[in-house]
Design a protein around this nucleic acid. Sequence first.
DNA 1: TCCAATCGTTGTAGTTCTACAATCATTAAC
DNA 2: GTTAATGATTGTAGAACTACAACGATTGGA
Lengths: 132, 132
Amino acid sequence: MTTPTEVWLLMRGFTMDRHERRREVSEATDLPFVRVKALRWIAREPVTLGELSRMLVNDRPYTTLIVNALEERGLVTREAHPEDRRRKLVTITEAGKRVVEKAEAILFAPPPELSALDPDDLATLDRIMRKL
Amino acid sequence: MTTPTEVWLLMRGFTMDRHERRREVSEATDLPFVRVKALRWIAREPVTLGELSRMLVNDRPYTTLIVNALEERGLVTREAHPEDRRRKLVTITEAGKRVVEKAEAILFAPPPELSALDPDDLATLDRIMRKL
DNA sequence: TCCAATCGTTGTAGTTCTACAATCATTAAC
DNA sequence: GTTAATGATTGTAGAACTACAACGATTGGA
């Protein structure tokens, strides 16, 4: 009789303990992980600083510092919001996109164990994961 | 045709993005997550400071500080190693065990989505996860 | 026995991150 | 038009974390 706890432990053990990628991403991009995270949100669509701080679950002043650092490195631009002069809109640059690609190449690379699964099991895993 | 990348993205999205527990554990225990992590390693068996710093992938001086903090809070004890006078052996206290239990109750609680899976899918997921 | 290596500690310096205060400009509500 | 609320910024303070240096005590190796 399988319990959800057992499955959860297996899954989190696999993803968080055995295949944790934060350090690797930070080294490859020469950016603290939170800045990569911010950049990835910005790459999805332009965001305001308030939105970004909510997404990152960070304090607004710290978010300002994060964006400052990204802007300084030429990875984002910051301009007035088209509808509200209190807000700024943060947009990714081409250089920023390249950093995101590099980070995601690392984050998204499946662990060898997954690649070694037979196609049936993989498809089954996919089907079940999509239900969650 | 399912790719390992797709499955990996689903899995890491589920565990890391949607069910990340570090903040919750830190709040519940009033300890930075790395200290809870250290405590959990120590709870498995007594360790030396060198072993702990390797497990945590931390700098030895910082590991000393971590253990200092835990010791100060009465969660671990530190004593001479039985076989090597250069080493210290760090052992968990009863109070420490209670903190570990509290942390693991949070870490190990399966997300609602998993609990809502039907038993067949759950058992299948279990079977496949054990192959990884 | 002497020298090299190891262990844990103390310390320095800097970066990252958290929490909070205060301020000014802008917008929303009345 | 006036007041309250919102958004971003600047700033302060402290904790968490990283990297490195140096050192004394102990152990291993020659």
